[in-house]
Computed example of a mutant assay.
Amino acid sequence: MEKLRFDFKMRGASDGKTTILCLTSIGTPDGRSFTVPDEYQPTSLHKELITSQVYGRVKNTLGKRNQFRKVWITLTENMKKAYLDEEGNLLFENFYLEEIPDKIAEISTTSTSEDTIKKLLEKVLESKEQTSEVKNLNKIAKDFMIEKFDEKTSNASQWIEQFEKECVRCVVAEDRKKIEILKFFLEKGSADWYTCMILKYSIESEWNNWKKNFIETFGNKGWSPIRYAFNFKYQSGSLLEYGLKKEKLLLQIRKSMDTETLIDLIAIGLPNYVSDKIDRGTLQETQDLYNEISKLEHLVKKNMHEKKGKPFWDNKQKKNEDKNPCEICEKANKGKRFHSESICWFREKEDKNKKIGSFKSVNNSELEVELNTEDPKN
């Protein structure tokens, strides 16, 4: 026999999670078919077969569970030794293959209605399997101990490395599954990037290509995230919540930051009346700082209470004391009024008085000059 028909099918592995390509049966040119035992079905065991170019194309064609193809392959000398004995009987690993009865083969080839039903069932099973796989991936993603990627504050290289560690921890080894799970941790701009990558490279591409593109796209080389993390200060609310958030921001930009620097940067963002109450020499870990901060929460509440309880007129009086009184109001005997002279109600009257005074001064000067120039004899 110069050629044989090899029947391939994608089936679930023993662990029930992964899908592998299997050789289910072998057919001969005279129409007979021989089944391959389950333990010999994984194509990884058929070393001579997988070197064939036809096998390479079949592998690229089949990607989903329960898909199958039947192809004819011309036998090489090594393949003949692997699948035929000296008499032309089919075997593998010195195990003779069992022939499928003619009636079963005839029914499967002549009954078009059964073929149609079979195809419909396969499509239903495939659809259910895809739905089940999506649910399974969603469940795996929930087990990941990592937050969603934030393109504004997260370090892209650091975040993707943490994602890969979670893949290892949750036993996600296939590139395809890594790519599918990644979408659960992206939103906004990064979600648009994911869609573009699907269109350009497809979900079947290598994970390393996705990782490289991710770092190149979101690797922030500017100072904005660093500036935001370093300058983040306490505004209101819980001191402990502030400390935890600042530590998170600092670790997102530099995971290797030493503990002493972390403590210093967190303490700098605290109000002075709080940080001055903490003995820096007793702090060894960030939790020591948080323990001291928790003890001083009452200082913040007291400060807020004092600000709220202070009368409004005290603030107004203090504010007024910082200004100079209006001179126009003082001259008009209106008392001390603190406002700009440009908007004073009595400014128009003051300007009018100045003009009249100036006019009188000019007339008096002219009269004096005329008197001095007259002849004294007259």
Rank of each mutant, 00 (worst) to 15 (best):
K3W: 04
F6T: 02
K9M: 13
R11W: 02
K17D: 15
T19Q: 13
L21I: 08
C22N: 09
C22P: 05
G27A: 13
G27V: 04
G31P: 03
S33R: 09
F34R: 01
T35C: 06
P37E: 13
P42Y: 04
L45W: 05
H46R: 09
H46L: 10
K47A: 11
T51E: 13
V54Q: 12
K59M: 06
G63V: 13
R69Y: 05
W72C: 03
T76M: 02
K80R: 15
K80Q: 15
E87W: 02
E87C: 03
G88N: 07
L91P: 00
L91S: 02
E93A: 14
N94E: 14
P101I: 00
K103M: 13
K103A: 13
I107L: 14
E122L: 10
E122M: 08
L125Q: 11
S127C: 04
Q130D: 14
I140V: 15
I146P: 05
F149W: 02
E151N: 06
T153D: 07
N155M: 02
A156Q: 03
E164C: 06
E164V: 05
E166H: 00
E166P: 11
E166N: 12
C170K: 09
V172R: 06
A173R: 10
R176K: 14
E180Q: 15
F185I: 07
D192N: 09
Y194G: 08
I198D: 14
L199V: 09
Y201D: 08
I203P: 02
N208H: 10
K211G: 05
K212N: 12
E216W: 02
T217E: 15
F218C: 03
K221E: 13
W223P: 04
W223V: 08
S224D: 14
S224Y: 06
I226P: 05
R227S: 14
A229E: 04
A229V: 01
A229R: 01
F230I: 14
Q235I: 13
Q235H: 09
E241Q: 06
Y242I: 15
L244V: 14
K248W: 04
L249I: 02
Q252V: 04
D258E: 10
T261P: 00
L262A: 03
L262Q: 10
I263S: 01
L265M: 10
I268Y: 02
I268L: 11
L270T: 08
I278L: 04
L283S: 08
Q284W: 10
E285C: 09
T286I: 15
Q287N: 08
V300W: 11
N303Q: 11
E306P: 01
E306I: 06
P311H: 01
Q317A: 14
K318S: 15
K319L: 10
N320V: 05
N320L: 15
C326M: 07
I328V: 14
E330P: 00
K331A: 10
C344M: 05
W345V: 09
F346T: 04
R347N: 10
R347P: 03
K349Y: 12
K352S: 11
K352R: 09
I356Q: 05
I356C: 00
K360P: 05
S361V: 00
V362E: 11
V362L: 10
N364V: 04
E366D: 07
E370S: 05
E370R: 01
D375R: 01
D375V: 07
K377H: 11
